[in-house]
Computed example of a mutant assay.
Amino acid sequence: RSYPTTTDEEDPDSNLNATCPEYFRWIHEDLRPWAYTGITLDMVERAKATANFRLVVLNGTAYLEQYQKAFQTRDVFTLWGILQLLRKYPGKLPDLDLMFDCVDWPVIKSIDYGGPNATTPPPLFRYCKDNETLDIVFPDWSFWGWPEIRVKSWVPLLNDLMEGNQRMGWDEREPHAYWKGNPEVAETRQDLLKCNVSDQQDWGARVFAQDWKKESKAGYKTSNLADQCVHRFKIYVEGSAWSVSEKYILACDSVTLLVQPRYFDFFTRSLKPLQHYWPIKPNDKCRSIKHAVDWGNTHQQE
């Protein structure tokens, strides 16, 4: 589809006094492997090995080459984000040649590109990375929607979450730590299930295994994210890699209990403990959660 190539309208987001978000400073770090060599066509094409698609923007027009279908509609909604960018800033995007991998876990390992005779790594975009990989992080597809599980795009969903937050003050919420998700994808999630309340012990956590097949048949009626902001504390724990749930948990206006993660996406590297979240020890989850819940419930003003 053709979009305008220029605009005479004033950019509604422009502000001469505005500063870039904190996570912008990581752009230079993500591109550091190519700081002295630049990025060549050969480097880009080597990223094809695991890429789902290639996106080329030339003179304001987007072109797509698909290599393998992504899970569900991850690729479609990632592309939709780029198209919205082209529409919002016509004539302002430079020419681009990008490879995208829509799988959760990063694959460009730093160790494979070290040493005096090492080649330069291929630039490959994906949704997360860790400290041992060189993949370039890009906002995940769910910012533009996740229709398979009825998740709206970020702006209308954030409005729903803000409305949900206003239904109940923090002191009126359930005085427990809440988590709901699929425990089958990671051992750390299965370990979290041990922190659930039992006849013998109450760690202050209420954790639930999500049955997506059952939810699908029920029309996802019990999975509305805006209805889940009713606990004073919410737990974030990684899945097979990072999880898209992190932004929804952080937006819930509860205290986020964040199990120390391995992976990060484009904005979470800038989060600070005890300012944006309460850190939870990954190898001692239950006691760590109980300490956070007990302290929070007895220090509500803080």
Rank of each mutant, 00 (worst) to 15 (best):
2 S>W: 03
2 S>K: 09
4 P>M: 02
5 T>C: 05
8 D>H: 07
8 D>E: 07
10 E>M: 08
12 P>Q: 02
14 S>Q: 00
16 L>V: 09
18 A>V: 01
19 T>G: 05
20 C>R: 06
21 P>K: 01
21 P>E: 09
23 Y>D: 13
23 Y>G: 03
25 R>F: 09
28 H>P: 03
39 I>V: 14
44 V>Y: 02
49 A>E: 08
51 A>G: 04
51 A>M: 02
56 V>H: 07
57 V>Y: 06
59 N>A: 09
60 G>S: 04
60 G>P: 06
62 A>I: 12
63 Y>A: 03
64 L>Q: 12
65 E>F: 12
72 Q>N: 09
72 Q>C: 06
73 T>L: 14
73 T>C: 06
74 R>N: 06
77 F>R: 04
78 T>E: 08
78 T>P: 01
80 W>M: 10
82 I>S: 02
85 L>M: 11
89 Y>H: 12
92 K>P: 00
95 D>F: 03
102 C>E: 12
102 C>Y: 01
105 W>L: 00
106 P>L: 04
110 S>D: 06
112 D>H: 13
112 D>K: 14
113 Y>H: 15
113 Y>G: 11
113 Y>I: 11
114 G>R: 15
114 G>N: 14
118 A>W: 12
120 T>P: 03
121 P>N: 05
121 P>C: 07
128 C>G: 07
130 D>K: 15
132 E>P: 04
132 E>L: 15
134 L>F: 11
140 D>T: 00
140 D>P: 00
142 S>Y: 08
143 F>N: 09
145 G>E: 11
145 G>V: 09
146 W>R: 14
148 E>M: 11
149 I>K: 07
153 S>A: 15
153 S>F: 04
154 W>P: 09
157 L>E: 15
159 N>S: 14
161 L>A: 13
162 M>Q: 15
162 M>N: 14
164 G>T: 03
164 G>L: 03
165 N>W: 12
165 N>Q: 10
167 R>Q: 13
167 R>N: 13
168 M>E: 14
169 G>A: 15
171 D>Y: 13
171 D>N: 14
187 E>Q: 06
187 E>D: 03
193 L>K: 12
193 L>D: 02
198 S>W: 02
199 D>W: 12
199 D>N: 08
207 V>Y: 10
208 F>C: 05
212 W>R: 10
220 Y>G: 09
221 K>R: 08
222 T>V: 02
223 S>C: 06
224 N>K: 11
225 L>C: 04
227 D>I: 00
229 C>P: 00
229 C>V: 14
229 C>T: 14
230 V>C: 07
231 H>L: 06
232 R>V: 13
232 R>M: 14
235 I>D: 06
238 E>H: 01
240 S>E: 05
242 W>Q: 10
244 V>F: 05
246 E>P: 00
246 E>C: 07
246 E>S: 06
248 Y>M: 08
248 Y>P: 01
251 A>Q: 10
254 S>P: 04
254 S>C: 15
255 V>W: 07
260 Q>A: 04
261 P>E: 06
262 R>L: 11
262 R>S: 10
264 F>V: 15
265 D>F: 02
265 D>I: 02
266 F>S: 10
266 F>R: 06
267 F>W: 12
271 L>K: 10
273 P>H: 05
273 P>F: 09
276 H>A: 02
281 K>G: 00
284 D>Y: 04
284 D>F: 01
287 R>N: 14
290 K>W: 08
293 V>W: 09
295 W>A: 08
297 N>C: 12
297 N>L: 09
297 N>I: 11
299 H>F: 07
299 H>D: 04
